[in-house]
Amino acid sequence: MRVIQTLFACWLSAVCLAGLGADAAESPHPLAVALAFDRPINASSAPLVVAMTDGLFSSEGLAVTSRIAAGSPEAIARVASGASEFAVVDINALIRFRSQASSPVKAVFVLFNKAPYAIVARKSRGIHVLPDIEGKTLGIADGDLSAGLWPALARQNGINLDHVKQSPISAAVREPMLSAGQLDAVTGFSYQSAVNLRDRGVPADDLAVLRFADYGCEAYGFAVIVNPEFAAKRPDAVRGFVRALIAGTNLTIRDEGHAVDQVLTRMEEGSRELELERLHAVVRDNILTDEVNRNGLGGVDPVRLEHAINQVGEGFHFEKHPTATDIFDDRFLPARADRLIN
């Protein structure tokens, strides 16, 4: 019996090493990598958290540690410098970065097939659809990337920007000022501001969530980027990271309750009910789109990405115009069949 057990253990070890690729086979120890989140963790980070807590990264031979950066620019800078091998960032911040810097940082997996940008407004202030924003006061938080896409969105929808009063505000007072009636609408994430406002007592039927994606914005959302030197030296590790994230995304979609429970272990304070509502909105509006159902998780449509880059450029005035191949590298994605939702 002991001989059989020993033979089985050797066989299992060989199978696992074969599945992990050359990087893992060269070392019996997990490869330590750092992942930077560009903001504090909540339910929108569930696929990555599930991949960490459910052993999906470790099954790919990766020991993933995480830290929180102060926004996408800082997270991108960490990856560019090599301080972190991976980061999850707003891909539109990466577009801005590549228009200004020479570092060839690229995304290797798109988590949010649709950007979560939205204008969240009070219907009681006369805003029901996007054109109603004319003549109103719109609060735009410092550093809000949606501000860069707003000019293109307004032009597409026949909105005269001169007729919209834009009020610069701190992100910390965005929801309080809207709930207090000091603003008519704010820019933000559809799953963030709207859920937070309902938690502050604003009736759901008084909120108009005007998603940029519903009005012609082609932007993708959060994506995983990788340090280019690390990707060149450890391509199998990058592929393993992507496989684990695909598995984590599938698990999140199948069992949102479990995913939220794992997220709550990474939050100092959090309401299960609130985070479940947030995750449901993220899966419905940003992850599980028609494009993903057709083509699978993680990839991009190059033509759509080029259009999105152009839309970002209308608001941010590029120093040099990046292309889709500057932004996204599809070499680390598995075949479409292995990326379809299961």
Rank of each mutant, 00 (worst) to 15 (best):
D330T: 11
E218H: 13
L20R: 15
P131E: 03
G298A: 09
Y191I: 04
L94Q: 06
G135V: 03
G148Y: 11
F57W: 01
W11Q: 12
V260M: 04
G139P: 04
R278N: 07
H317P: 02
L94V: 12
R96V: 15
L333Y: 01
I140V: 15
S66F: 10
F109I: 05
E319S: 13
R294A: 14
A24R: 12
G71H: 06
A43H: 06
V202A: 04
K165P: 01
F57H: 05
D338L: 11
T65F: 03
I309Y: 07
A51T: 11
L183Y: 03
V195L: 09
V33K: 06
R339E: 05
A172R: 09
N286L: 14
G55K: 10
R198A: 11
A14Q: 12
V79L: 03
G143A: 05
G270C: 02
R122F: 01
T252W: 10
L279A: 06
L62N: 04
P334C: 10
G135C: 05
A213F: 03
G21A: 10
R272G: 04
V224T: 12
G181L: 08
L276C: 07
V164D: 01
I309E: 06
D144N: 14
A46N: 01
V50Q: 00
T53E: 15
V186Y: 00
V260Q: 08
H321K: 14
G139Y: 00
A281T: 14
D214G: 04
A247Y: 08
A219Y: 04
N42T: 12
L17Y: 12
A43F: 08
A51E: 00
L56Y: 03
H258G: 12
A14R: 10
Q182D: 13
I41W: 06
S102P: 00
R39V: 11
G71T: 04
F86Q: 07
H258W: 05
A118N: 03
D90L: 10
G181D: 11
R278T: 14
A24F: 07
E269Y: 09
L210G: 06
D236K: 07
V209K: 01
L297W: 04
V292D: 03
